[in-house]
């Protein structure tokens, strides 16, 4: 990166460190922090949407919807995350390829399953094997987001389902007495107020989601854990211009600080949100605010 880094063997002390920390591999490491943040930013709303759909379905008056919503939450919540993460990524990928195969190559003569091989025609590969590496990476990342959203959506559904039931029933009855249809009562009375009851559970989920991001590494996305391990491993002078011993401790230490900072910032932000939502509500938080103001 710097001109002075051309000959690393002559460098010492801070100069060496500056060059070391800005080599190509480290730049990829820094980028991977962006990958993790991007995952959080995309997954959180998608998972919330999944959760909302799941919770709405679970309290639906139509029985099949109710079954669907209930079984979604109970199945996903009951199976270990890691099994889901490994299963979904392979299963979703193969399901997409199978569908594309049916559409694009209807007259393909060979079976799709050949022993342990999963073979679809070239045009059905997702992404096409001729597409550049970044497409493959984006596709892998999208699969990861979808998997995270499905898993965390189930937990969010459960939280929201509980929150919907916590909104005082008397309010819904009042709404109906004023002539609201049940749809209107749902959107205008229930949904705006349920967030207060959902927030403690959702903030908990958010914290767990932050902690779960290293699972990206399991899904084959080159995230911060991958690079920390790769960079921290000892390097011999023959294969690197910056030989060093086993530095994994420092790299994983940096990750620790990063995650602690991230959770701390979220905690502060969520506390503020809670204060805002409690305003004027008939809950202990709202009551405390009222007393403090008086």
């Amino acid at each position: 990166m710097f001109a002075s880094c051309a000959d690393p063997e002559t460098l010492t002390g801070l100069n060496w460190l500056a060059c070391y920390l800005t080599n190509g591999k480290h730049l990829l490491f820094y980028q991977s922090f962006g990958t993790v943040m991007l995952l959080l930013v995309i997954t959180a709303p998608v998972a919330l949407a999944f959760g909302f759909l799941g919770a709405s379905a679970a309290r639906s008056h139509v029985a099949p919807f109710r079954w669907l919503g209930k079984s979604y939450t109970s199945i996903v919540r009951g199976v270990p995350d890691i099994a889901f993460f490994l299963f979904f990524v392979i299963a979703l990928d193969q399901a997409f390829e199978w569908l594309r195969h049916q559409v694009k190559c209807p007259d393909w003569g060979q079976p799709i399953r050949q022993g342990s091989d999963f073979v679809v025609c070239d045009a059905a590969k997702l992404p096409l094997s001729s597409s550049p590496q970044w497409v493959h990476e984006t596709y892998g990342f999208a699969l990861a987001v979808l998997t995270f959203a499905i898993v965390f959506g189930a937990f969010a559904a459960n939280v929201l389902f509980g929150a919907m039931r916590s909104v005082p029933h008397a309010q819904m009855e009042t709404a109906e007495a004023y002539g609201f249809s049940s749809r209107q009562a749902f959107w205008r009375i229930l949904v705006p107020q349920m967030w207060l009851y959902a927030l403690p559970g959702l903030s908990n989920l958010w914290m767990i989601l932050i902690k779960a991001t290293p699972l990206l590494f399991l899904l084959g996305v080159e995230d911060i854990v991958y690079w920390a391990r790769e960079l921290g491993g000892s390097k011999t002078a023959r294969f690197s211009d910056y030989p060093h011993g086993d530095w994994r401790m420092w790299y994983f230490g940096a990750l620790l600080v990063f995650y602690l900072l991230l959770t701390k910032v979220s905690e502060v932000a969520l506390d503020r949100l809670m204060t805002r939502l409690s305003h004027g509500q008939a809950t202990s938080g709202g009551e405390a605010q009222r007393k403090a103001a008086a």
């Binding site: 080599n23 591999k25 990829l28 011999t236 294969f239 690197s240």
Partner: peptide, 18 residues
């Protein structure tokens, strides 16, 4: 694998080498 020098490893630029 990118972690088995001299067969294959990631060089300082993060590319597969070896």
């Amino acid at each position: 694998e990118g972690a088995y020098p001299p067969f294959n490893y990631l060089n300082d630029d993060g590319e597969v080498d070896g």
